[in-house]
C-alpha cells in the first residue's frame, strides 16, 4: 500500500481569552476534496501534534458549512476567509491557521464577534413591524431595487471586512463596514425607510460612518462580493443630508 499523504497545518492556538498564543503543527492524513474544516475534524479525531505528543483538540467555530453563516471565519495563510470554503487542494502548504486578530479570542480559532452585533444594534439594522394590531401589507418594493438590495442582504456578519480594515482596532471604536452596509439595506426597504432617520442617527454616533478612512480593503476581501465601499459612500451622503436637516430643520427630518 502506498504511503499515506499528509497535509501540514500550523495553527495559532490560545487556551483561553487571557492566555498567551502559541503555534502548534499537525500532520493530517490527506483526502481528496478536503477543506480546512475537514482537516480540523481529523485533528479533533486524533489530537496528536507533529511531534507525536498528545494535545488538546483544536477548537473552532462552524455552523452551516456552505459559506452563508459566517461563523467559521479565520485567517488562512494570511487571508481572512471562511474555513468551510477553503479547499486544501487550492491552498499553499503548510496551511497556516490563526484566529482573526481584530476580535477577542475565546479559545484557539474561536473569536467573539459580539462587537459586530453591537454595531447592528447601534444602527438599528432591522425593520420594526410589531404592533398591537395587524398593520396590513407594507408598501411594494420596485423589482430593480430589490435586486441590488439583495446583494447587500448577503452579509453574514462574518467579520472578514473588520479584520481587513485598518481603522477597526483597539485604539478606535469604529463599527466597521458591515453594519454601515446593513443600515443602507434596511433604509432601502420601503417599510424600513419609515425609520430611516433612526439608522442614520446611529451611523452618526461615535464610531459610526465617519470612522471610515477609505482604505477600501473591505470591498476587496468580502467573501460575498458586497459593494461595501459604495454602501459607505451612500451612507456618507445620507448622513450628511440628515445632519443638515437636523441642524437647519426640515419637515422630512423624521
Amino acid at each position: 500500500m502506498a504511503e499515506q499523504k499528509t497535509v501540514t497545518f500550523i495553527i495559532t492556538r490560545q487556551d483561553g481569552p487571557d492566555s498567551a498564543p502559541y503555534e502548534e503543527t499537525f500532520e493530517v492524513p490527506y483526502r481528496t476534496n478536503m477543506n480546512v474544516i475537514s482537516g480540523l475534524m481529523e485533528i479533533r479525531k486524533n489530537p496528536v501534534n507533529a511531534k507525536g505528543e498528545k494535545t488538546t483538540p483544536v477548537q473552532w467555530d462552524m455552523n452551516c458549512l456552505e459559506e452563508v453563516c459566517g461563523a467559521c471565519s479565520m485567517v488562512i495563510n494570511g487571508t481572512p476567509r471562511q474555513s468551510c470554503a477553503a479547499l486544501v487542494d487550492e491552498l499553499e502548504t503548510p496551511i497556516r491557521l490563526a484566529p482573526m486578530a481584530t476580535f477577542p479570542v475565546v479559545r484557539d480559532l474561536i473569536v467573539d464577534r459580539e462587537r459586530m452585533f453591537d454595531a447592528l444594534k447601534q444602527v438599528k439594522a432591522w425593520i420594526p413591524i410589531d404592533g398591537t394590531h395587524d398593520l396590513g401589507p407594507g408598501p411594494r418594493m420596485p423589482e430593480k431595487k430589490r435586486q441590488w438590495a439583495y446583494e447587500l442582504s448577503k452579509c453574514m456578519t462574518c467579520g472578514v471586512c473588520l479584520e481587513a480594515c485598518p481603522n477597526v482596532n483597539d485604539k478606535s471604536d469604529f463599527i466597521g463596514p458591515a453594519a454601515i452596509s446593513q443600515a443602507r439595506l434596511f433604509n432601502s426597504h420601503p417599510t424600513g425607510d419609515m425609520n430611516k432617520s433612526e439608522r442614520l442617527e446611529g451611523l452618526m454616533e461615535d464610531g459610526g460612518v465617519s470612522g471610515c478612512g477609505n482604505s477600501q480593503n473591505c470591498v476587496q476581501v468580502c467573501p460575498k462580493g458586497i459593494p461595501l465601499t459604495t454602501s459607505i459612500a451612500a451612507m456618507n451622503r445620507a448622513t450628511n443630508i440628515q445632519a443638515f436637516k437636523n441642524f437647519f430643520g426640515s419637515d422630512n427630518a423624521h
Partner: peptide
Amino acid sequence: TAKNNTSRFSY
C-alpha cells in the same frame, strides 16, 4: 489610531 496593514493587504 490607524493600524496599517499594507503588508497583509497591499491594495
